[in-house]
Amino acid sequence: MRGLYNAAGSMLVNQVKMENISNNLSNLNTPGYKRDEVVQRTFPEILLYRTEQSRPGAGFYGPYGNLHGPIGIAAENVAVEEIPTMHIPGGLRTTGRDLDFALQDEGFFVVETEDGLRYTRDGHFHLSEDGMLVNSRGFPVMGEDGPVMLESENPYVDREGNIFEGEEHVDTLQVVAFDEDTPLWKEGNNHFEVEEGFEPDLVEQPEVFQGVLEESNADLSRQMTDMLKVRRTYEAAQKVSQVYDTMLSRAANELGTLS
């Protein structure tokens, strides 16, 4: 009867997958969005043991045939192991707006929120009332030392993130990167949050593009095929449940009846 629970587990996991695909799809036009992928795992794998006393000679598990012997491996259930974020760069889209920035390779822009520093690849920035460079949420974007202050919405920013107004070098956009296994998670608002105790490294030679936004790296065709797969797997799991249902029904109602 374990299979019934396996089927139910599979349905639950596929629901999580479906949620994830919906989220990726809804963020198709979110600048700097990184897609998530559900990694599933069977857990825990266990050995099945005989419950009845083996008849001598029937088993091949050694000379002690009358002991309870293992008969094979079965998976208890399936579950979501993790939902990692794919930090693959998205395509670049030219907007021509002077306060739109994109990072080509690795790295994040740094914004300061009430809860501390957050990291983002969404370079759609604005100017606040007092001339501070802020993101869409109104959080200041960090330069070399502290928030970037500008005089106009039309600065010139070179490849390395140096900001010029006229001839004057005003500030440099802070671009940081993390080691590969740093726990970074999405917080919403296109922000990434890093677990306490992990410090980013300053990128010495960032590749900053002005007038360009990084597109979401979720691609439509792949998400759509994944969605089809989820739908069919879900259906299959449902069928399995129904088969078990039939079996149980037979066992309960038909076994032992004459007709």
């Binding site: 998530d36 857990f43 979501v80």
Partner: peptide, 14 residues
Amino acid sequence: LPRAGEPLYPPRSG
């Protein structure tokens, strides 16, 4: 929801 193990990134859904 069913999860397995204690991964580095606790799974979250958007």
